[in-house]
Simulated assay, not measured.
Amino acid sequence: MAIQWFPGHMHLTQKAITERVKDIDVVIELLDARLPGSSANPMLARLTANRPALKVLNKQDLADPERTERWLAHYNGLPATRAIPLDASLSTPAQQIVRACHALSPNRGGLAKPMRVLICGIPNVGKSTLINTLTGGRKAKTGDEAGITKLEQRITLADDFYLWDTPGMLWPRIVVPKSGYNLAASGAVGRNAFDEEEVALELLGYLKQHYAAGLVARFKLVEHEHEPAELAEMRDEALLDTIGRKRGALLGKGRVNLQKAAEIVMHEFRAGNLGRITLETPEEFAQWLAEGQRADAEREAKKAARKQQRKGGKAAAAEDDAAA
């Protein structure tokens, strides 16, 4: 199942960014450090007209430290781009962000040329929490549901540093299927846009390959067949069933409530109870992206061929009518 979620306010955000970026010096994109590639908005580079970019890998305290370093190296290797890790609950992240912005746009600063920064990110990535930390108050609404912020806000961090906050925004079509699953698992996608059991199975399929020890420890999978080394051979459906039984998610006659089991798995991941996890490496994401773009190009080619075929059929019918 392809996961897509682009409610109306996201279309308005797209238009607002297009207008606002004309007067912006640096664009901050807040990424989820657990899925840095999937949470990077491919539409943003076009909308922000290649402005200098600061990639902030938020929730780094929940992410795999070794993989975070690999992602930082990846983004810091891009032109006009800097990347820093961050935990939005830290008490003093403002200086780090301000320094990074001035490094990207060194000619801005002072009352005559104040720094003008736009902060963007996917829903539920922690943007509002970060802004409240930066301002020392509750300037932005927060919550664990995607799509809390609905309006653009201007926030003054200093006399010569202005920050524009935008609502969380995905993009109209997610061409990387794995990204859709990772976004859903992280909470960036509205619950009505995906099947929780399907997403939980995808999540377990990755975790058992790369973070089996966390699954074994958290869900008390202590039987021999569930040791970390053996877990990779277990079917995803059987693993979800086992977790449901361990947590008492049962229906009548001993059947497992798979919906409830899926909710448990995703809650444990989002809360960081399975350990520090990152669901993708730069190399994995590059492969997924190439495959997704190739499949998307094939879909577009078939769509164009069908359109041309219908057009040709109409033309032939018109010629027959004229001959008659």
Results as ranks from 00 to 15, higher is better:
residue 193 A to H: 06
residue 191 R to F: 04
residue 163 L to P: 05
residue 188 A to N: 00
residue 168 G to S: 01
residue 196 E to Y: 11
residue 193 A to K: 06
residue 160 D to F: 01
residue 177 P to G: 07
residue 160 D to M: 03
residue 194 F to H: 11
residue 172 P to T: 02
residue 191 R to I: 05
residue 178 K to T: 15
residue 169 M to F: 10
residue 177 P to V: 06
residue 169 M to H: 08
residue 160 D to W: 01
residue 195 D to Y: 12
residue 181 Y to H: 14
residue 195 D to M: 13
residue 190 G to P: 07
residue 184 A to K: 01
residue 164 W to P: 13
residue 170 L to W: 00
residue 192 N to R: 12
residue 190 G to E: 11
residue 166 T to G: 07
residue 198 E to K: 15
residue 161 F to A: 05
residue 194 F to D: 11
residue 198 E to F: 14
residue 196 E to D: 15
residue 172 P to C: 08
residue 192 N to H: 14
residue 162 Y to C: 06
residue 181 Y to A: 13
residue 194 F to W: 12
residue 179 S to K: 09
residue 192 N to A: 12
residue 182 N to L: 02
residue 182 N to I: 02
residue 173 R to A: 10
residue 176 V to R: 03
residue 187 G to I: 01
residue 183 L to D: 01
residue 180 G to R: 00
residue 167 P to G: 01
residue 181 Y to N: 12
residue 175 V to N: 10
residue 171 W to Q: 04
residue 195 D to K: 13
residue 186 S to M: 08
residue 168 G to Y: 00
residue 188 A to V: 00
residue 164 W to C: 13
residue 163 L to T: 02
residue 177 P to M: 11
residue 177 P to L: 10
residue 178 K to Y: 14
residue 171 W to T: 05
residue 174 I to T: 07
residue 173 R to Q: 14
residue 197 E to C: 11
residue 161 F to I: 06
residue 176 V to L: 03
residue 162 Y to N: 06
residue 172 P to M: 07
residue 198 E to P: 14
residue 185 A to N: 13
residue 176 V to S: 00
residue 184 A to V: 07
residue 186 S to A: 15
residue 160 D to R: 00
residue 168 G to E: 03
residue 182 N to A: 09
residue 173 R to H: 12
residue 179 S to F: 12
residue 183 L to A: 01
residue 198 E to G: 14
residue 190 G to Q: 10
residue 171 W to V: 06
residue 162 Y to M: 11
residue 169 M to G: 07
residue 166 T to W: 11
residue 191 R to E: 12
residue 198 E to W: 15
residue 173 R to M: 12
residue 165 D to N: 06
residue 162 Y to H: 09
residue 179 S to I: 09
residue 161 F to V: 07
residue 189 V to A: 05
residue 180 G to F: 06
residue 198 E to T: 15
residue 174 I to C: 12
residue 187 G to S: 04
residue 167 P to T: 04
residue 190 G to Y: 06
residue 169 M to N: 09
residue 174 I to D: 04
residue 178 K to D: 15
residue 177 P to E: 10
residue 182 N to Q: 11
residue 177 P to H: 08
residue 189 V to G: 03
residue 194 F to R: 10
residue 162 Y to R: 09
residue 174 I to A: 06
residue 195 D to P: 10
residue 161 F to G: 00
residue 172 P to L: 09
residue 171 W to Y: 10
residue 180 G to P: 06
residue 171 W to N: 05
residue 173 R to F: 07
residue 189 V to Y: 01
residue 165 D to E: 07
residue 188 A to C: 04
residue 188 A to M: 02
residue 165 D to W: 04
residue 170 L to G: 00
residue 185 A to R: 13
residue 196 E to S: 15
residue 163 L to D: 05
residue 173 R to W: 07
residue 169 M to E: 10
residue 197 E to W: 12
residue 174 I to R: 01
residue 164 W to Y: 15
residue 183 L to C: 04
residue 189 V to K: 02
residue 161 F to E: 03
residue 176 V to A: 01
residue 165 D to A: 05
